[in-house]
Protein backbone atom coordinates (compact mmCIF):
# COMPACT_ATOMS: atom_id res chain seq x y z
CA UNK A 1 0.00 0.00 0.00
CA UNK A 2 1.24 3.49 -0.72
CA UNK A 3 1.32 6.42 1.69
CA UNK A 4 -1.98 7.81 0.42
CA UNK A 5 -3.92 4.58 0.97
CA UNK A 6 -2.32 4.03 4.36
CA UNK A 7 -3.11 7.61 5.41
CA UNK A 8 -6.78 7.07 4.62
CA UNK A 9 -6.74 3.98 6.81
CA UNK A 10 -5.42 6.07 9.69
CA UNK A 11 -1.82 4.81 9.61
CA UNK A 12 0.37 6.96 11.88
CA UNK A 13 3.59 6.29 10.00
CA UNK A 14 2.01 7.29 6.71
CA UNK A 15 0.81 10.54 8.26
CA UNK A 16 4.26 11.19 9.73
CA UNK A 17 5.98 10.55 6.41
CA UNK A 18 3.56 12.75 4.51
CA UNK A 19 4.30 15.65 6.88
CA UNK A 20 8.05 15.13 6.32
CA UNK A 21 7.56 15.16 2.57
CA UNK A 22 5.52 18.36 2.82
CA UNK A 23 8.24 19.94 4.95
CA UNK A 24 10.74 19.08 2.23
CA UNK A 25 8.56 20.58 -0.54
CA UNK A 26 8.02 17.22 -2.19
CA UNK A 27 5.76 17.45 -5.20
CA UNK A 28 4.26 13.98 -4.68
CA UNK A 29 3.10 15.02 -1.23
CA UNK A 30 1.43 18.12 -2.62
CA UNK A 31 -0.34 15.90 -5.17
CA UNK A 32 -1.69 13.68 -2.39
CA UNK A 33 -3.10 16.76 -0.65
CA UNK A 34 -4.62 17.93 -3.95
CA UNK A 35 -6.37 14.60 -4.47
CA UNK A 36 -7.61 14.31 -0.89
CA UNK A 37 -8.40 17.98 -0.25
CA UNK A 38 -12.15 17.30 -0.44
CA UNK A 39 -11.79 15.31 2.79
CA UNK A 40 -10.43 18.27 4.76
CA UNK A 41 -12.37 20.92 6.67
CA UNK A 42 -13.70 18.58 9.35
CA UNK A 43 -11.01 19.22 11.92
CA UNK A 44 -11.40 22.24 14.18
CA UNK A 45 -8.11 24.12 14.43
CA UNK A 46 -7.04 25.75 17.69
CA UNK A 47 -3.99 28.00 17.65
CA UNK A 48 -2.09 28.23 20.93
CA UNK A 49 0.20 31.21 21.18
CA UNK A 50 2.01 33.23 23.85
CA UNK A 51 5.44 34.22 25.07
CA UNK A 52 8.28 31.69 25.62
CA UNK A 53 7.78 29.78 28.85
CA UNK A 54 4.17 30.87 29.30
CA UNK A 55 3.05 27.23 29.39
CA UNK A 56 1.70 26.65 25.88
CA UNK A 57 2.87 23.03 25.72
CA UNK A 58 1.66 22.09 29.18
CA UNK A 59 -1.68 23.74 28.52
CA UNK A 60 -1.99 21.95 25.16
CA UNK A 61 -1.25 18.67 26.97
CA UNK A 62 -4.00 19.34 29.54
CA UNK A 63 -6.59 20.48 26.98
CA UNK A 64 -5.83 17.40 24.89
CA UNK A 65 -6.49 15.15 27.88
CA UNK A 66 -9.88 16.84 28.42
CA UNK A 67 -10.79 16.31 24.77
CA UNK A 68 -9.57 12.71 24.84
CA UNK A 69 -11.97 12.08 27.74
CA UNK A 70 -14.70 13.04 25.26
CA UNK A 71 -13.35 10.52 22.76
CA UNK A 72 -11.97 13.06 20.30
CA UNK A 73 -9.00 12.31 18.03
CA UNK A 74 -6.32 14.95 18.41
CA UNK A 75 -3.45 16.24 16.32
CA UNK A 76 -0.78 18.53 17.75
CA UNK A 77 1.69 20.54 15.68
CA UNK A 78 4.31 22.05 17.95
CA UNK A 79 6.56 24.63 16.34
CA UNK A 80 9.93 25.72 17.72
CA UNK A 81 12.46 28.08 16.12
CA UNK A 82 15.08 26.99 13.60
CA UNK A 83 18.53 28.57 13.93
CA UNK A 84 19.12 31.15 11.20
CA UNK A 85 22.83 30.29 11.43
CA UNK A 86 23.03 26.50 11.32
CA UNK A 87 19.55 25.56 10.11
CA UNK A 88 19.31 23.26 13.13
CA UNK A 89 16.73 23.35 15.89
CA UNK A 90 15.89 22.03 19.32
CA UNK A 91 12.27 20.92 19.28
CA UNK A 92 11.37 20.48 22.93
CA UNK A 93 7.60 20.73 23.18
CA UNK A 94 7.11 16.97 23.54
CA UNK A 95 8.76 17.09 26.97
CA UNK A 96 5.51 18.47 28.42
CA UNK A 97 3.37 15.92 26.59
CA UNK A 98 5.07 12.65 27.53
CA UNK A 99 1.89 10.93 28.72
CA UNK A 100 0.23 11.47 25.35
CA UNK A 101 2.91 9.62 23.37
CA UNK A 102 1.25 6.23 23.74
CA UNK A 103 -2.33 7.33 23.13
CA UNK A 104 -3.26 5.90 19.75
CA UNK A 105 -5.65 8.76 19.06
CA UNK A 106 -3.12 11.52 19.64
CA UNK A 107 -0.59 12.50 16.99
CA UNK A 108 2.15 14.92 18.03
CA UNK A 109 4.55 16.41 15.55
CA UNK A 110 7.37 18.85 16.29
CA UNK A 111 8.32 21.28 13.54
CA UNK A 112 11.17 23.75 13.08
CA UNK A 113 10.27 27.14 11.60
CA UNK A 114 12.87 26.57 8.83
CA UNK A 115 13.34 30.21 8.05
CA UNK A 116 9.69 31.23 8.14
CA UNK A 117 8.83 34.16 10.39
CA UNK A 118 5.45 34.75 11.96
CA UNK A 119 5.51 32.10 14.68
CA UNK A 120 4.85 28.98 12.61
CA UNK A 121 6.52 27.23 9.68
CA UNK A 122 5.53 27.28 6.03
CA UNK A 123 4.86 23.54 6.12
CA UNK A 124 2.38 23.96 9.00
CA UNK A 125 -0.32 24.78 6.44
CA UNK A 126 0.26 21.44 4.73
CA UNK A 127 0.65 19.51 7.98
CA UNK A 128 -2.78 20.70 9.18
CA UNK A 129 -4.31 19.26 6.00
CA UNK A 130 -2.47 15.97 6.48
CA UNK A 131 -3.83 15.66 10.05
CA UNK A 132 -7.29 16.59 8.84
CA UNK A 133 -7.24 13.81 6.23
CA UNK A 134 -5.79 11.46 8.85
CA UNK A 135 -9.04 12.03 10.73
CA UNK A 136 -8.33 14.36 13.65
CA UNK A 137 -11.35 16.06 15.24
CA UNK A 138 -9.25 18.82 16.79
CA UNK A 139 -5.83 20.09 15.75
CA UNK A 140 -3.73 22.23 18.08
CA UNK A 141 -1.05 24.40 16.52
CA UNK A 142 1.39 25.55 19.14
CA UNK A 143 3.40 28.50 17.85
CA UNK A 144 6.95 29.33 18.80
CA UNK A 145 7.20 31.56 21.85
CA UNK A 146 6.07 34.88 20.43
CA UNK A 147 6.76 38.51 21.19
CA UNK A 148 4.41 41.16 19.90
CA UNK A 149 3.87 40.71 16.21
CA UNK A 150 4.14 37.06 15.21
CA UNK A 151 0.49 36.71 14.40
CA UNK A 152 0.39 34.30 11.45
CA UNK A 153 -1.46 31.79 13.60
CA UNK A 154 -4.60 33.84 13.07
CA UNK A 155 -4.42 33.00 9.35
CA UNK A 156 -4.69 29.32 10.12
CA UNK A 157 -6.68 28.80 13.29
CA UNK A 158 -10.43 28.74 13.87
CA UNK A 159 -9.88 29.76 17.49
CA UNK A 160 -6.79 31.55 18.77
CA UNK A 161 -5.93 30.87 22.40
CA UNK A 162 -3.57 33.47 23.82
CA UNK A 163 -1.59 32.21 26.81
CA UNK A 164 -0.49 34.96 29.18
CA UNK A 165 1.29 34.89 32.51
CA UNK A 166 0.92 37.35 35.39
CA UNK A 167 3.19 40.40 35.59
CA UNK A 168 4.42 40.63 32.04
CA UNK A 169 4.53 44.41 32.01
CA UNK A 170 2.28 47.36 32.68
CA UNK A 171 -1.20 48.09 31.36
CA UNK A 172 0.22 49.72 28.23
CA UNK A 173 1.20 46.24 26.97
CA UNK A 174 -2.49 45.31 26.93
CA UNK A 175 -3.49 48.16 24.62
CA UNK A 176 -0.65 47.69 22.12
CA UNK A 177 -1.47 46.52 18.62
CA UNK A 178 -0.49 43.09 17.36
CA UNK A 179 -0.68 39.86 19.26
CA UNK A 180 -3.24 41.09 21.81
CA UNK A 181 -5.73 41.78 19.03
CA UNK A 182 -5.92 38.28 17.60
CA UNK A 183 -7.02 36.34 20.67
CA UNK A 184 -10.45 34.70 20.74
CA UNK A 185 -9.83 33.30 24.21
CA UNK A 186 -7.31 34.49 26.80
CA UNK A 187 -5.79 32.09 29.31
CA UNK A 188 -3.84 33.55 32.19
CA UNK A 189 -1.65 30.60 33.08
CA UNK A 190 0.31 30.25 36.35
CA UNK A 191 -2.57 32.06 38.03
CA UNK A 192 -1.40 30.89 41.43
CA UNK A 193 1.32 33.54 41.11
CA UNK A 194 0.87 37.10 42.36
CA UNK A 195 -0.54 39.56 39.88
CA UNK A 196 -2.96 37.24 38.08
CA UNK A 197 -5.96 39.38 39.03
CA UNK A 198 -4.27 42.57 37.87
CA UNK A 199 -3.36 40.97 34.53
CA UNK A 200 -6.95 39.82 34.04
CA UNK A 201 -8.25 43.28 34.88
CA UNK A 202 -5.91 44.95 32.39
CA UNK A 203 -7.00 42.65 29.60
CA UNK A 204 -10.68 43.09 30.47
CA UNK A 205 -10.32 46.88 30.50
CA UNK A 206 -8.73 46.73 27.09
CA UNK A 207 -11.56 44.52 25.80
CA UNK A 208 -14.03 47.11 27.15
CA UNK A 209 -12.63 49.55 24.60
CA UNK A 210 -13.29 47.28 21.63
CA UNK A 211 -16.12 48.10 19.27
CA UNK A 212 -19.40 46.50 20.33
CA UNK A 213 -19.70 43.00 18.95
CA UNK A 214 -21.76 39.92 19.74
CA UNK A 215 -18.62 38.07 20.82
CA UNK A 216 -16.25 39.11 23.56
CA UNK A 217 -13.05 37.13 24.23
CA UNK A 218 -13.24 35.54 27.69
CA UNK A 219 -10.28 35.85 30.07
CA UNK A 220 -9.76 32.69 32.11
CA UNK A 221 -7.34 32.18 34.97
CA UNK A 222 -5.83 28.67 35.00
CA UNK A 223 -2.88 26.67 36.23
CA UNK A 224 -1.77 24.09 33.68
CA UNK A 225 0.78 22.48 35.97
CA UNK A 226 -1.76 22.06 38.79
CA UNK A 227 -4.47 21.14 36.29
CA UNK A 228 -6.78 23.85 37.64
CA UNK A 229 -9.72 25.19 35.64
CA UNK A 230 -8.64 23.49 32.42
CA UNK A 231 -12.20 22.20 31.94
CA UNK A 232 -13.54 25.76 32.24
CA UNK A 233 -11.00 26.97 29.68
CA UNK A 234 -11.93 24.20 27.25
CA UNK A 235 -15.58 25.18 27.65
CA UNK A 236 -14.68 28.76 26.69
CA UNK A 237 -12.92 27.50 23.58
CA UNK A 238 -15.92 25.39 22.68
CA UNK A 239 -18.22 28.37 23.26
CA UNK A 240 -16.21 30.23 20.62
CA UNK A 241 -16.43 27.24 18.28
CA UNK A 242 -20.21 27.10 18.76
CA UNK A 243 -20.52 30.83 18.26
CA UNK A 244 -18.63 30.66 14.94
CA UNK A 245 -20.67 27.68 13.77
CA UNK A 246 -24.08 29.05 14.77
CA UNK A 247 -23.54 32.48 13.25
CA UNK A 248 -21.97 31.17 10.06
CA UNK A 249 -18.84 33.12 10.90
CA UNK A 250 -16.70 29.99 10.72
CA UNK A 251 -17.16 29.91 6.94
CA UNK A 252 -16.44 33.61 6.75
CA UNK A 253 -13.26 33.22 8.79
CA UNK A 254 -12.07 30.21 6.82
CA UNK A 255 -12.70 31.99 3.52
CA UNK A 256 -10.67 34.95 4.73
CA UNK A 257 -7.85 32.62 5.77
CA UNK A 258 -7.91 30.66 2.52
CA UNK A 259 -7.66 33.89 0.57
CA UNK A 260 -4.48 34.68 2.47
CA UNK A 261 -3.18 31.17 1.88
CA UNK A 262 -3.77 31.36 -1.86
CA UNK A 263 -2.08 34.76 -2.07
CA UNK A 264 0.86 33.39 -0.13
CA UNK A 265 1.22 30.44 -2.52
CA UNK A 266 1.08 32.75 -5.53
CA UNK A 267 3.67 35.08 -4.01
CA UNK A 268 5.96 32.20 -3.29
CA UNK A 269 5.71 30.77 -6.80
CA UNK A 270 6.10 34.15 -8.46
CA UNK A 271 9.09 35.05 -6.36
CA UNK A 272 10.73 31.75 -7.22
CA UNK A 273 10.01 32.29 -10.92
CA UNK A 274 11.49 35.77 -10.90
CA UNK A 275 14.46 35.10 -8.68
CA UNK A 276 15.46 31.96 -10.58
CA UNK A 277 15.79 34.20 -13.65
CA UNK A 278 17.53 36.99 -11.77
CA UNK A 279 20.06 34.64 -10.22
CA UNK A 280 20.60 32.72 -13.45
CA UNK A 281 22.68 35.39 -15.21
CA UNK A 282 24.20 36.95 -12.09
CA UNK A 283 21.87 39.89 -12.64
CA UNK A 284 21.20 40.26 -8.93
CA UNK A 285 24.92 40.33 -8.21
CA UNK A 286 25.51 42.97 -10.90
CA UNK A 287 22.62 45.15 -9.83
CA UNK A 288 23.49 45.12 -6.13
CA UNK A 289 27.03 46.13 -7.11
CA UNK A 290 25.80 49.08 -9.14
CA UNK A 291 23.31 50.14 -6.51
CA UNK A 292 26.02 50.11 -3.86
CA UNK A 293 28.23 52.30 -6.11
CA UNK A 294 25.24 54.65 -6.51
CA UNK A 295 25.23 54.13 -10.28
CA UNK A 296 21.65 52.92 -9.95
CA UNK A 297 18.94 53.03 -7.34
CA UNK A 298 17.09 50.02 -5.83
CA UNK A 299 13.80 50.97 -7.51
CA UNK A 300 15.27 50.89 -11.01
CA UNK A 301 17.01 47.61 -10.16
CA UNK A 302 13.64 46.17 -9.16
CA UNK A 303 12.11 47.29 -12.47
CA UNK A 304 14.91 45.54 -14.38
CA UNK A 305 14.27 42.28 -12.54
CA UNK A 306 10.51 42.48 -13.02
CA UNK A 307 10.94 43.20 -16.74
CA UNK A 308 12.55 39.75 -17.06
CA UNK A 309 9.17 38.06 -16.76
CA UNK A 310 7.11 40.79 -18.32
CA UNK A 311 7.41 39.87 -21.97
Amino acid sequence: MNIEERLLEGDKRACARLISLLENNDEQAVNIIKRQYHRTGNAYVIGVTGSPGSGKSTLTDRLTKELRAQGKKIGILAVDPTSPFSGGAILGDRIRMSDLALDKDVFIRSMGTRGYLGGISKATWGAVKALDIYGCDYIFIETVGVGQSEIDIVKMADTVLMVMVPNMGDDIQAIKAGIMEIADVFAINKSDLDGADKTKLEIEMNLDLNEKSDYRAPVEQVSAIKNEDIDVLLQKIMNHENYLKETGKLHERRRRNLKVEIIQLVEEELLKLIMDKALEGDLLEELSHEVEKRKQDPYTAKEKIISLIRE
Binding site: T82, S86, G87, G88, A89, I90, L91, G92, R94, I95, S98, A101, S110, G112
Partner: peptide
Protein backbone atom coordinates in the same frame (compact mmCIF):
# COMPACT_ATOMS: atom_id res chain seq x y z
CA UNK B 1 22.18 21.84 11.28
CA UNK B 2 20.04 18.97 12.54
CA UNK B 3 16.51 19.13 13.91
CA UNK B 4 16.67 17.65 17.38
CA UNK B 5 13.50 16.45 19.06
CA UNK B 6 14.20 16.23 22.77
CA UNK B 7 11.69 14.19 24.76
CA UNK B 8 12.89 14.65 28.31
Amino acid sequence: GMEVIYTG
